[in-house]
Nucleic acid binder design. Structure first.
Lengths: 259, 259
DNA sequence: ATTTCGTTCAAACGTTCGTTTTAATATTAG
DNA sequence: CTAATATTAAAACGAACGTTTGAACGAAAT
């Protein structure tokens, strides 16, 4: 009646292989035949177990995101419980949100860096069904963290927080996916960047940890940056340059950063 | 002998349409037939004028990146000339690099937001020929700006600067591409974020300017963030915890940011 | 007027795509 | 053991893909 014995063997072998191939080649460029032959299963096995190629991709993500979503919500629950009503520190929120994800990269049982890279890359896939899928999968978690940031930064306009959350997601996704993509842009091997001295067989586990250690200060620095000033002509409906916008305005200092 | 008369009409109509469709659907999911029928040209026109689909994509980018690369180098040249040997301020470098790009989004003649979105999205395309193409196109500019940041931030390890440049590129790309992608993640329409009050027909020009005004402080804040501390077990070749790395080390403060 | 050459066109090429079908083969239940 | 069911296997489906072909067209040059 149910797939008990080794039917899940084929299923999970397909999921593992598809996860890696989707990461390496993207969704469109990865064919069913490539997947099934690499997984050493019959071509029809994907349609039998999952129904379609789209459903396969969804299942690849559902398998990991179920854990990630639960972990992220639990991390936030624990923080808010400890705070006992007091607003959280932004660093705590970022650690809960991004740290939880980056810790997946250190654990091969949770997909490791393969899944992290796939996640970072797939977020930019233009396919409609992918976007709607992620919207549904992410909605609850994003909303919770958004609200947490709102109360953690009461003086920052909510629109600004959402933008910066957007920026942070982008920095993280690129940093993850780019360990074999954007190294070509920066002109450096990732091994050269993980540390001044690294082992020749750059381990994914240590790479994920280094990435987290480098990324978190950057994100926190961006989140707490001075608010932008809108000194151009405002194109609004009612009144030009409303005084309500000036309250939270603050000049961006042209400082000379010494991190 | 040369394409003088109206041959360039077909050529540029193909380039314009391909630019938009590649942005909307991605490279793999955009077929030659979709492009040629939308451009109202014959199916064979692409292969006649460009040789192949891959060459078409390259030409779509070369057309814009030629201007962008020249502008970026010129902006840096001017800055270094004005500085007369003195190191530049990081804010100047970021403004030259990212500001130049974001200003393309305000100018439809340079591709506008369509090209910006395409650029942000295509950087994550896994196809081999795309990565090698971008590597060649970006190499010189990235190298110049990398060196400028090195001398602007002499106390920051070069590896750290490259990482943060990587993060900044990611934040920008996502912010650009995500104006119709990641809004689904943040659960907000982009119109809600561009300002508290916006026109109902959200103009791309004002959107690009708002994006730049929001993004630059974020990037600068991330760039000048405190250096990360590596308190985990170092897996290096020769000596554990070399003292040379401690010189520039600085504890990440657990500050409560009030931007 | 005729040749020349850049361009456009309709049609077809061979290949690969995701999916379906039909039969054979394990696995479990009665 | 037999019947029912779940899984695998081989083969084929129609559709869509990027590319090529060879003829027709149009504007200059000889």
């Amino acid at each position: 009646m149910s797939d008990q014995k080794n039917g899940s063997d084929t299923r999970e072998r397909i999921l593992d292989v598809a996860e890696r191939l989707f990461m390496e080649n993207g969704y469109e460029a990865t064919s069913m035949r490539t997947i099934t032959s690499a997984a050493e299963v019959n071509l029809a096995a994907v349609n039998y177990h999952f129904g379609s190629k789209e459903a396969l991709l969804r299942e690849v993500f559902r398998r990991r995101l179920a854990w990630l979503n639960h972990e992220r919500l639990q991390a936030l629950d624990k923080l808010e419980e400890q705070a006992a009503g007091a607003p959280l520190k932004p660093s705590q929120i970022l650690e809960a949100f991004f740290g939880t994800l980056l810790r997946m990269g250190e654990n091969p049982a949770l997909g490791g860096m393969v899944f992290l890279r796939l996640l970072g890359r797939t977020l930019t896939e233009p396919a409609e069904f992918i976007r709607t899928f992620f919207a549904g999968e992410y909605a609850e978690v994003i909303d919770r963290y958004k609200l947490a940031l709102f109360s953690a930064l009461p003086d920052v306009p909510k629109a600004e927080i959402v933008w910066r959350l957007h920026f942070m997601l982008g920095a993280m996704s690129y940093a993850i996916a780019g360990t074999d993509v954007l190294q070509v842009v920066t002109g450096c091997e990732v091994g050269d960047l993980a540390g001044e001295e690294v082992t020749d067989e750059t381990d994914d586990t240590v790479l994920a940890r280094r990435l987290a250690q480098r990324l978190m200060p950057f994100l926190l620095g961006g989140l707490r940056a001075p608010l932008p000033q809108f000194d151009d002509v405002q194109r609004i409906k009612k009144e030009p340059l409303p005084k309500t916008a000036r309250d939270t305005r603050e000049k961006t200092p042209d400082q000379d950063p010494r991190p």
